[in-house]
Every structure is written in structure tokens, then in C-alpha cells.
Design a protein around this nucleic acid. Structure first.
Length: 553
RNA sequence: GCGCCCGUAGCUCAGUGGAUAGAGCGGCGGCCUCCGGAGCCGAAGGCCAGAGGUUCGAAUCCUCCCGGGCGCGCCA
């Protein structure tokens, strides 16, 4: 049903409850909200308001329901939207709608087109989504892929809901890891020049390739260059690789923010002294500590080491200060779940800086347990034997991989067997959804070839759509905006993949039982308009997921 | 030891405090003279890890407990 239909129901029920309130001698009404019954016999939409009132007043819920119903029936009868309303299940109030209540959604989809599903609940508020942010010390692996997919789709969804979204990658291009990377590359390079083997911390094949690259460029000429040179070279080249991998995965950023920039610009000193001025920093044991225990953290944290250098947290203070100062109203950080222990101190930082800790949401991405033919595969960057994002894209394809990564709650671990994904690729849910779209395209062109010209939904006799498959499909189509909104509110993109499977299922069902071409013309045209609406909705959903909607497969 | 996440069908997982807990895969049985069979339909499969509690109502919230994963640095 469309938003306006829901508003009418809400208004009727509110009025009826208000009248019941007087009769039952109650002062305040609990908030009224609706739910969609799972069971068809429970109507199209229902309310549990009677239970809430009953428990407040200590009277039977059936009595409350009856009282509300008395006032409701007359209103219902005046409106063509309703078939009937009843009290059932000990107090639920169930509304049964006429098919006519659902048809307006077809007009809405037709009018809104690719905007169907969008809303303005975000009110133009500025949101910064920071995701992936993998250290540039090696190629992205499968775990980063999940982070990338979730962050990207969250950003898409929030944008569709009227937020002003920016996507950002925080590049940790300084520090001990980068130094170790430089040392490792230098060792590889020296090996090529015939030096004896030394300890290499990053053992991946990619560094061997980079060293060859350097050798081909200048043979022995980098022999006397310092570790910093090799570190810079490695970071630059690895970052380019990461960028390319993400591009092929359909993920783009508005900004790649360099940690080095925070160090060289003096932002870190500034941010730390701001906290000092607020009395939130303490000098102790030769170091500067953030008194994060004054907020919700379990212990204080070092921000400036005894050697005077800033910690990672110090950089994060400056980084998040900048995020807010650049005008973001809200921050979303997508992190690997192994960083969850870091949340309280970052929230403390934000509170210390004078912002609300609620303005930061952290979406944790649980581990992807990768298997190859059932055998666990290590994913440590340093072990040098991991399965990269690149390999998996090449193996199972971007669309399939994105869908897979988005099918489960980010909060739960994900089992991903490469052989299985390959073997089952033809039965992968993404194909099921895409197939529905391809089928529609094929059907639309077949209809056109047979002289059936697609009409605007408003010029079609919707009331001819009375079969249960048709009504079911229309109803599912009508949920789409709420699903998008719900995903945005809960920051759970997996709801969208679930919805698209449901939508595809409804369409396949419709398609299998009913025909379009060959029916009496007006009915065929009405069905054609319905099919078109399904196509638009599938396209919109797939677009949000960053997955293609192929016309042929 | 302390903290966070997860335990739901044989497997992988959905499930805003609501009514008879769902889907896909696997297995079983059906459906192509027909717009794409990468599809559709049907049956089977469950003590929602376990025990208490809150509630008119709990897979969902609270406490405890058992299993699995991950964290508890002047690393990043």
C-alpha cells in the first residue's frame, strides 16, 4: 500500500482509539504503530494497540479491542479502501483492504521511475561513511571485500534516503607497519642484486613483483636508497592496486584521506592540545594520557609517547575532529569486528572533543571464514598466503560476490567456500534475481513485437488485476520504500538482498501461472504495466546493491 | 580473568516483543504444444544450545550456564 493509504488507516485508528479512551476513562494513549501480519487470514495490516491499553488499565484486551472496533466500523464503511476490519487473536485489530487500495502503488512506481524507493527522511544531513581503510601494506583480501560491499551499499542506501553522503578511505600510510613494509621491499630488491637473504616481514608475492619492477626500472640504482624510499614506493604502488581492485568491485570513494597529512600539517598536535585545554590530558610516566575513563572507557590511553611521538589514537583524534569540522552531522565507520575493543575510546574522544558520541555509528563486520574445498584458508596479511579480493572477483564475478557478501547480517560470521560458490554459481541467489529481470526484459520486447504497446499505469485498467499472484506481486512492490528506509535506519544492507529475492520469487510465481501476451487486450495491458513496475523496482534495488541488471543472461 | 559477537531445519542463514518460527541449498514427488525450465508447485525436515526470570504475549528483553569466534599495547 502507498504511504497515503497507510496514513488513512492510521488516522482512522487514532480517532477510534481516542473515542475509546473517553469511554474507558484513560488519560494518555500509548503510541500506535502497525505491523504486517505473516498470516494472510490476519489481514493486510494490523495493530496491537488493544494489548497496550489493556495492560495499562488492567482490563481484558478483548474488551478494549471491541470498544475500539465499535468506533472503527462506521469509518471503514465510508472508505472504498477497506473490505473489513475485525478483532482477533485476543485483541489484535486486523484491517482487510480491497485490491483497489494497492493499485495506486503502480502509478507511483510509474511516475517516480528510478526514484521509486527514495525518500527524504535524511533531510539533507551530511553523513561521512568511512570504510575499507585497509593498511596499504598488501592487496585487499576477502575480509576487506565484505567491508567494501557493506560500506558501499550503506552509502547508496543513505543517499537514496536523502542524506548527503561522502565516502572516505582512511589511508594509514605512516607508522611502524609502513616502515616494516619498506624494509621488506628493500630486502627483496637486494636479493635480486644477489645479496644474501634477510628477514622479510611481509612475505607476499606482491613485494617480489614490486622489487622486480624497481629492478627493471633502474637495475642497481636504488641500492643505496633508504628504507623510506622503498616504503613510499611500496605504499604508492599498493594503493594503486587497491584502488583498481575496488574499482573493479564497483566501489568508489570521494576522498582518500592520508594519515600522513595529519602528521605533517600539525593537525595532531592541535587536536591533542585542544583536549589538553579541556583538562582531558594528563602527563604521567613520561607520556601524555587521554583521560578517557572520564567517559565510558575502561582505562586511560596514551596519546603522546614518552619519546614524543603521537600514537595511532592521537591521529584518530585529529582525524575525527576533522570529520566533524568538515561539516558532517553524522559519522559511520565500517570496521572489522576485531577492532571492537577500540570503540569505547573513540567514543570517548568524540565526547571529549565536544561532540555527541551518538553522532558516530560503528558497523562491525564479522569475519569471513574462507574455505577452499572445505579447508580453511589463512587470511593473515603477513603470512603472505591469503586469497585476495582480486582472485575471488576473477573466480566468481563481481555481481555474485557482492550479493554473497551482502546476504547476511554484518554482525554474524560468514562462511564462504570458493569451490562451493563456483560450483553453485548457476544457482546462486543473485542469478535468481537477475534472471527475473532478464525474463521481464524478454517479455516486454516479446509483447512489443506482438503489437502490445506499453501504456502508462494511469491509462491502464488496474482493477483487472485480481488474481492472487498479481495482488501478491503488487503488495511486494509496495514494500520496497519501507525496506530501503529500514535498511538505512538499522544500517543493515542485507535486508535489501532478502527483499529482492522475495520480489523475484513473486514475479517468477506470477510469470509461471499467468500470461500476458495472448490475454484479452485490456487485461494484457494491465499486466504489462505490472511487469514494468516489477522491472523498475528490481532495477532500483539492484542499483542500490551495485549489481547489474542484465537484459539477457 | 574481563569485554564484544554468534548458537534457529541435514548444510548456509533470515526472522522491527505479537497470532500456526521462514528462505535457499541438499534429498523426495510432480509441472515444458505455452511470453526464457537459470523457472514453478507439493510433501518432508524444529524442544529456536540449555536453565531461570520480566510480559497479556519471548527465537527476540534480563540473569545464569554451555559451546564457537574475536578482542583486552607507549602496535596500527
Amino acid at each position: 500500500m502507498t504511504r497515503s493509504t497507510k496514513q488513512v488507516i492510521g488516522q482512522f485508528l487514532t480517532e477510534a482509539v481516542e473515542e475509546a479512551r473517553k469511554k474507558l476513562d484513560m488519560d494518555v494513549i500509548p503510541p500506535i504503530y502497525f505491523e504486517l501480519p505473516k498470516e494472510k487470514s490476519h489481514g493486510d495490516i494490523s495493530s496491537n494497540i488493544s494489548f497496550l491499553i489493556a495492560s495499562k488499565l488492567g482490563i481484558p484486551s478483548t474488551k478494549v479491542a471491541d470498544t475500539i472496533l465499535e468506533n472503527l466500523v462506521s469509518k471503514i464503511q465510508q472508505s472504498p479502501l477497506f473490505n473489513k476490519v475485525e478483532a482477533a487473536g485476543g485483541g489484535f485489530i486486523n484491517f482487510f483492504l480491497n485490491p483497489g487500495a494497492f493499485y495506486p502503488v503502480l502509478l507511483q512506481i510509474d511516475e517516480e521511475g528510478e526514484k521509486y524507493g527514495c525518500s527524504d527522511v535524511g533531510g539533507g544531513r551530511k553523513v561521512l561513511v568511512e570504510f575499507v581503510s585497509a593498511n596499504p601494506t598488501g592487496p585487499l583480501h576477502i575480509g576487506h571485500a565484505r567491508n567494501a560491499a557493506v560500506g558501499d551499499v550503506l552509502a547508496n542506501i543513505l543517499r537514496a534516503c536523502g542524506f548527503d553522503v561522502n565516502r572516505e578511505y582512511y589511508l594509514n600510510d605512516v607508522g611502524s607497519q609502513v616502515e616494516a613494509l619498506g624494509k621488506s621491499l628493500k630486502s627483496r630488491y637486494m636479493q635480486l642484486l644477489g645479496e644474501r637473504e634477510v628477514d622479510v616481514e611481509y612475505k607476499g608475492e606482491y613485494l617480489v613483483e614490486l622489487s622486480r619492477e624497481l629492478f627493471e626500472k633502474g637495475e642497481r640504482q636504488y641500492k643505496d636508497r633508504g628504507v623510506e624510499f622503498f616504503a613510499n614506493y611500496a605504499v604508492k604502488r599498493i594503493r594503486e592496486g587497491i584502488e583498481k581492485d575496488l574499482e573493479d568491485f564497483g566501489v568508489f570513494f570521494d576522498c582518500w584521506f592520508s594519515e600522513e597529512n595529519l602528521h605533517s600539517s600539525g593537525s595532531i598536535r592541535k587536536a591533542v592540545s585542544l583536549l589538553e585545554e579541556k583538562g582531558l590530558v594528563e602527563f604521567r610516566e613520561g607520556a601524555k594520557w587521554l583521560k578517557s575513563t572520564e567517559f565510558a572507557d575502561e582505562k586511560d590511553r596514551v596519546v603522546i609517547r614518552s619519546d614524543g611521538s603521537p600514537t595511532y589514537l592521537a591521529a584518530d583524534i585529529a582525524y575525527h575532529y576533522r570529520k566533524f569540522n568538515d561539516g558532517s552531522d553524522r559519522l559511520i565507520n565500517v570496521w572489522g569486528a576485531d577492532h571492537h575493543g577500540y570503540i569505547p575510546r573513540l567514543k570517548a574522544v568524540i565526547e571529549g572533543l565536544g561532540f555527541s558520541p551518538d553522532a558516530l555509528d560503528i558497523v562491525l563486520i564479522q569475519l569471513v571464514k574462507l574455505r577452499r574445498s572445505g579447508k580453511p584458508v589463512s587470511m593473515s596479511t603477513r603470512a603472505g598466503e591469503f586469497v585476495t579480493l582480486r582472485e575471488v572477483i576473477d573466480e566468481v564475478g563481481k555481481d555474485s560476490m557482492r550479493f554473497f557478501m551482502l546476504m547476511r547480517r554484518s554482525n554474524a560470521q560468514l562462511d564462504f567456500d570458493l569451490e562451493l560458490a563456483k560450483r553453485q554459481s548457476m544457482e546462486n541467489p543473485v542469478y535468481y534475481v537477475q534472471y527475473a529481470h532478464a525474463r521481464i526484459c524478454s517479455l516486454l520486447s516479446f509483447a512489443d513485437e506482438n503489437g502490445l504497446r506499453l501504456r502508462k499505469a494511469k491509462d491502464v485498467q488496474c482493477e483487472l488485476l485480481r488474481e492472487k499472484e498479481e495482488l501478491d506481486l503488487i503488495k511486494v512492490l509496495s514494500f520496497f520504500p519501507e525496506v530501503v528506509e529500514g535498511s538505512a535506519r538499522s544500517l543493515e544492507p542485507h535486508r535489501l538482498t532478502g527483499y529482492l529475492q522475495r520480489l523475484a520469487s513473486s514475479f517468477h510465481n506470477f510469470y509461471d501461472r499467468l500470461r500476458v501476451v495472448g490475454e484479452e487486450e485490456e487485461k494484457a495491458l494491465a499486466r504489462l504495466a505490472l511487469v514494468k513496475a516489477a522491472q523498475i523496482t528490481l532495477q532500483n534495488g539492484l542499483r542500490l546493491l551495485g549489481i547489474s541488471a542484465p537484459e539477457k543472461m
